[in-house]
Structure formats: C-alpha cells, structure tokens
Amino acid sequence: MNLLRSEWTKLRSVRSTWIAALSTVAAGVALSVLGASDLLAAAQSGLPDGWDPTAASLKGFLFAQLVIGMLGALAVTAEYGTGMIGTSLTTTPSRSRLLAAKTTVVAAVALATGLATTLLSFTAVQLLLGGAGLPVAGTGDPGVAGALVAATLYLTLVALIGLAVGTLTRSSTGSLAVLVGVLLLVPAIAPALPGALGDAFARYWPTTAGQAAYTVVPVDGALAPGLGSGLLTVAAVAAVAAAHVALRTRDV
C-alpha cells in the first residue's frame, strides 16, 4: 500500500502525466470525429457493406494508443532520465515490488484515461452520425457494450506495453521509437508481406488482434473479439514479465 501511494505521488506530481492523459483523450476524440466526418456526406445507401458505427467511432485510437503508450513508458523512463531510479531502488530494494506497484498505478491511470477516451469518442461520433441521419450504435445494442469494454482494455494494455518498453529501453526516445514500430509501422506494413506471413501479421499481431476486439461487425479474416483481447493481454503480460526479468538482473 505504501508503494502504491508513493508511485501515485510520482505520477500525479509531474505535468507530463496529465499532458499525456489529456492528449490521449483529446487526440482520440478529435481524430475519431475527424475520421467519421467524411462519411457524413454519404447517403445511407452509400455506406460500405458491414458498416460498423461502433468501430467507426474509435478511429482516433490509431494515434491515441501511441500517446497512452508513452504515458506508460514515461512512468519509468523519467526515473532513468533523471537518475531518480537510484533513490527509488535504495528506498525499495525489492525491484519486483517496485515494478508491481508501478504497473498497478499505471494500469489504474490508463484505465481511467482509456475509459474516458472510449466513451467520449463513441458518444461524440454517434451524435455526429445521428445528426447526419446515418445509422448509429447505442450501448444497449448487441455487442456494443462489449466492444467499448474491449476498447478501454485495449488502451490500458497498450499503456502497460509502454511501461514494459520503457523499463527495457530505459530511455524516452528509445521507447518512442519502439512504440511507433510496434503500434504503427508493423501493423501497417507487415500484412503486405507475401503469403502466410502477411496473413499471420494481419491476424495475430497483438495490437491488430486487440483492435478486432472492439468491432461489433466482424471484419473478414480477423480474430474473434475474446480471442483478440486475450492475445493482446498475453502480449502485455509477456512484455511486463520481460521487463521484470531485465529490471531484476541488470545493474542500475
């Protein structure tokens, strides 16, 4: 409990945490609205097959995930950057307990941020679509509530992957490079690889799988929502486990 309190003080007492959290929400909502707005001119009959108003309202996650990933990374890289990690580990020599506390607090902050981003993006876009006379999704519709939970979980897990990457690289710029690769470049480029390899990336790359979990209308070739969230969870747990091993075995 003492360590959770300490880690919460670390996070809340620097501006960068709040800037990252607000940027996640703002970027998520703004880009979702922007992404939906070019559909507004389309007539109802002009909508593509399998039109999914829920997934369409969360397009801003493409960028928001990077910001929340950096929120997770900065929770640890700021300590390496300033050298404060030395004092942290002198006060708490058990590195496992320190990482557990950090992970818990980052997860809680990311959960709140992810929930706000999801609900605000969804609501804003549904209002926009409704205003244009297009079909909308409501939280009571089948599969919608589950998709919104999966979307919140998605952003939370990405923050934990960011925390793990930050622990492994011990550098803010290094973390940014890795996260851009993992979250943006690989999912954009790898599916174009020839044959089964490209298909595997399109289906099983953890963040792509996690994104499939917040669609209501299944996309061709994507994993089932439960499986998608599960795969991303496994990836996040594996990343945090690797960070744990590195933190325990390396000299500071």
Binding site: N2, L3, R5, S6, T9, K10, S13, V14, R15, S16, A78, T82, G83, M84, G86, T87, S88, T90, T91, T92, P93
Partner: peptide
C-alpha cells in the same frame, strides 16, 4: 531498508518539474 540506510548518490537526480516537497513525499510514502 528505508529506515536502516539513507543515501545521497547524485544530488541532481531529481525530476526538474517535481516540487521538492513532492519529491520527498514520494520516498516518505515508500
């Protein structure tokens, strides 16, 4: 450990945007 040994390794190892009070509070709470 925190009540057995105290250390000053690098006085500059503080987050520049954190207040002195909050810096101390972090380690006090731990």
């Amino acid at each position: 450990p925190a009540r057995t040994v105290g250390a000053l390794l690098d006085a500059r190892a503080v987050h520049p945007h954190r207040s002195a009070f909050d810096h101390l509070l972090v380690f006090a709470q731990a």
